[in-house]
């Protein structure tokens, strides 16, 4: 039995190893390049001859990278919280009550997911400008405070929750909000966790909207901060890679600390 299943088993592992290599090699290259001196930046050696922290020192000296990281964390965390809360409330409304137009509302939300960012970019920009949100963290968060994807994931998780349990809470005297927060939400923790992680990563990596909105480096987020090292005169790869490593660190740390929970939540929620 074991011998029969070995060849496909080995092939599967070989494919997985290859895919992991393809995914991880650029990360490794970014990491090791950040330690290279400028004279060996284009070397194809797998590790710098004389590793140095000069690039990191230069990044910290040239730009307020810690402030930028703080901005990015604040923006990503607030966006995630807002998206999960709005998604939770919208999904609850659609699952808990049958009301005229409910199905249309659900369809419209689902359709809005299919609208590309480029279509709403200009109207959003004009609106943000008129609301005085230009060059602010609030301007980055508010237009992204509700997301169709988040709502749809939570909606599907809630639909699978037994209706009788919700009715039991009603019989026990729990109001609608109490039922949501005290009974339903704790039982859909896995999908909530996975959708939160996806929201956070998506917000952290967002580039285009901050590029439109942010003007000053103090209000910037990391993805915009990185482009300061990309100039018309050429790219400063050492500084760029050091800044990129610093930008990736929080996400990597989150993943390393919560690795088991992250994988569990994705498996349990069916979000892959």
């Amino acid at each position: 039995m074991t011998t029969k299943s070995r060849p496909p088993h080995v092939a599967a592992h070989a494919v997985m190893l290859l895919l992991s290599f393809i995914a991880l090699f650029p990360v490794y290259w970014m990491f090791q390049t950040s330690f290279r001196a400028s004279n060996e930046i284009f070397s194809s050696a797998l590790w710098p001859n004389a590793p140095t922290l000069d690039n990191y020192r230069a990044v910290l000296a040239t730009m307020p990278i810690l402030g930028i990281l703080q901005n990015t964390f604040l923006m990503a965390a607030t966006t995630t919280l807002a998206q999960v809360v709005t998604g939770l409330l919208a999904a609850w409304a659609l699952v808990r009550w049958t009301f005229p137009g409910g199905r249309i509302a659900h369809t419209l939300i689902a359709l809005s997911w299919l609208v590309p960012f480029q279509v709403v970019m200009i109207p959003n920009y004009v609106l943000a400008t008129k609301m005085g949100l230009l060059d602010s963290i609030a301007g980055l968060v508010i237009p992204n405070a509700a997301a169709a994807f988040t709502m749809l994931v939570i909606y599907n998780a809630m639909r699978g929750f037994p209706r009788a349990v919700i009715e039991a809470a009603r019989m026990d005297g729990a109001g609608s909000l109490r039922t949501l927060m005290g009974v339903v939400a704790p039982n859909i923790r896995a999908p909530l966790a996975s959708v939160s992680i996806l929201c956070f990563i998506s917000a952290w990596n967002d580039y285009f909207w901050p590029l439109l909105l942010i003007r000053r480096v103090e209000n910037s987020v990391v993805q915009i901060g990185l482009q300061f090292f990309m100039t018309q005169e050429g790219n400063d790869w050492g500084l760029l890679m050091a800044a990129a490593t610093l930008a990736s660190l929080p996400i990597l740390l989150i993943y390393l600390v919560l690795q088991r929970q992250v994988v569990d939540s994705f498996i349990k929620s069916g979000v892959r």
Binding site: P162, A164, V165, E167, A168, A169, R170, M171, D172, G173, A174, V183, P186, N187
Partner: peptide, 29 residues
Amino acid sequence: DPARRGCAMVFQNYALYPHMTVAQNIGYA
């Protein structure tokens, strides 16, 4: 409202709160 009718209901599939202990389930109301 259901909670104010003075009725208590036992459901077909028990409808217990999965994340609560037995004591918390009984004492929730």
